[in-house]
Amino acid sequence: MRTISVQNADGNQIVINAFPIDEVGANERADYFTKRSVKKESKLSALYLALSMCDLTTLEGADTPGRVQQMCAKARFPVPPEMIEPFLKKKNWGPIPTVAAVCVYPSMVPHAVKALEGSGIGIASVSTAFPSGQAPLQVKIDDTLFAVENGATEIDMVINRGAFLSGDYQQVFDEIVAIKKACGDTHLKVILETGELGSYDRVRLASEIAMEAGGDFIKTSTGKVTPAATLPVTLVMLQAIADFHQRTGKKIGMKPAGGIRTSKQAIQYLCMVNETLGPEWLTPNLFRFGASALVNDLLKQIFKEATGHYYYDKVFSID
């Protein structure tokens, strides 16, 4: 077992134990979730649930206020309500849910706030010099404060991988604590960027540090690095959340991001969450998908269930 200790703000030592991960076992276990067949009513409710858990994301250099507004419109109404109306009389059918949140760069937060006013949809802003995290701490704090002051309800920060990989866990810990302080009541998601960490052991250790330092959610990736979210890496993080919950009673959320494009994948993730953490984690408050292409595939499958016909994604708006 890997044991490290870090000092918290009060000068107390916190001992962090990171269990070694059986890589082959984790891969095998994750692979097991790809062999399920979820059909009919179960599939339909999984599709609805997955849609309500999406963080509709645009994180491009080419983002404009117009593009963000358009995405926010999609977040409010993934499809025009009249499209689903004919099916509402059927058993198990309900209105199409809104997505959980939109995820944008800090400079786009004011535009998202305006576009989502009164909708109850969260506004997540990436911060701390996303995606590399290579900036001085003060810059990262200012980045976060800007987003929070402009109305972001959730902050997606990246950990300092440079510090983590060179063994400076104290710095990683301190940065998360500092950003959490800047966030105040705003929800903090900590992005580990698992694709750059290199092994499941390190993913487990980074998860432990992020949770101890006060992250409300842990998130796999920025989406800018491959591999992004994979089933086994998410499993390792879910298991860390389970152990942390058992130890402290705190419920930490999970957000796999990047590379989840199909409904089939989304359902595999939901099965995995259910069997690792239990049904109480199957809520947008504790589980999110960081995705953009996924939303249209979910809609495609929902309408396939409704009409029995294979659907075309051009029927739905491209955000």
Partner: peptide, 8 residues
């Protein structure tokens, strides 16, 4: 029937 109705 799946050919006939497939939207793609």
């Amino acid at each position: 029937s799946h050919l006939g109705t497939h939207m793609e």
